[in-house]
């Protein structure tokens, strides 16, 4: 009796969450800026965490929640690292351009 209620409920939740995941993917593809895409990836990570937790209860495998915790940590780390790397690359290019312009101006003068 109990199984017959929980099983369809979890399957329904998984289907709804996967549709939401697809919509997030549309945002990640459409997003005009890099921050948009990173934000969409962060949202997808959150939804995948809920999906993994539902699967842990559906399959009666408790260790899947450990994987969910590790997923949360790696998702957070990836967002922070990619943001920092992108800021670093942008500033580097900016400085190179400024140096090049400054060098040209010096040569002209």
């Amino acid at each position: 009796m109990k199984e017959s209620i929980y099983h369809p409920l979890f399957i329904l939740l998984l289907i709804v969450l996967s549709f939401m995941l697809l919509v997030c993917l549309i945002r990640a593809v459409k997003g005009p800026r890099v921050a948009d895409r990173l934000m969409a990836v962060n949202m997808m990570g959150t939804m995948v965490m809920v999906m993994i937790s539902i699967l842990a209860l559906l399959l009666r495998e408790g260790y899947l929640v450990d994987i969910c915790l590790i997923y949360a940590m790696i998702s957070f780390l990836s967002v922070v690292v990619i943001s920092k790397v992108y800021i670093g690359i942008y500033e580097e290019q900016h400085h190179y351009q400024e140096d090049a312009e400054g060098g040209n101006a010096d040569e002209c003068s």
Binding site: A35, L38, M39, N42, M49, V65, A72, F76, V79, Y90
Partner: peptide, 25 residues
Amino acid sequence: LIIVFLWFASPVSSHVLSRLEAATN
């Protein structure tokens, strides 16, 4: 534990993302 971790991690990642946007736009 996941909920508590995300309470700490989500504001930090939002902050880093907004810094990325402010620095590169």
